[in-house]
């Protein structure tokens, strides 16, 4: 499933990286620890996190993640959005918490 379909179905708001929403999503990874994401996420995953600082973008780029979903309606730093646009990493925002959005994404991708 492509990111843009997921945005629609999970009612996410795309805040950056809009040029790259046609990417296929391979799965999801939910974590707020950067070392954990670096070690265990897979290419094409959507990363669900509450982290809003710019170092998340480097992690997403390094692991070729499809994008980042920021939970709990947290607003990413300006630096984060700037870097995300430069590196073409979609940053999506959700009002829901990590547990809920992970569950919904799991259901969507399982189908």
């Amino acid at each position: 499933m492509k990111i843009k379909e997921i945005i629609e179905k999970l009612q996410l708001k795309a805040l950056a990286g809009q040029a790259n929403l046609d990417v296929d999503v391979s799965g999801g990874y939910t974590s707020d620890l950067l070392s954990d994401v670096i070690a265990n996420s897979k290419e094409g995953n959507l990363w669900i996190t509450l982290q809003i600082h710019q170092n998340t973008i480097a992690v997403a780029r390094l692991k070729d993640l499809a994008g980042i979903i920021i939970v709990n309606n947290r607003e990413p730093d300006d630096d984060t959005l700037k870097k995300a646009n430069k590196e073409n990493v979609p940053v999506l925002c959700s009002q829901e918490m990590a547990f809920e959005i992970s569950g919904k994404l799991y259901e969507l991708l399982k189908a």
């Binding site: 620890l33 950067l34 070392s35 670096i38 996190t49 170092n55």
Partner: peptide, 15 residues
């Protein structure tokens, strides 16, 4: 708070 300092860095490198 930024999600660093999990104590996984060096072990991850070795692994």
């Amino acid at each position: 708070e930024m999600g660093f300092g999990a104590g996984m860095g060096l072990p991850n490198i070795k692994k």
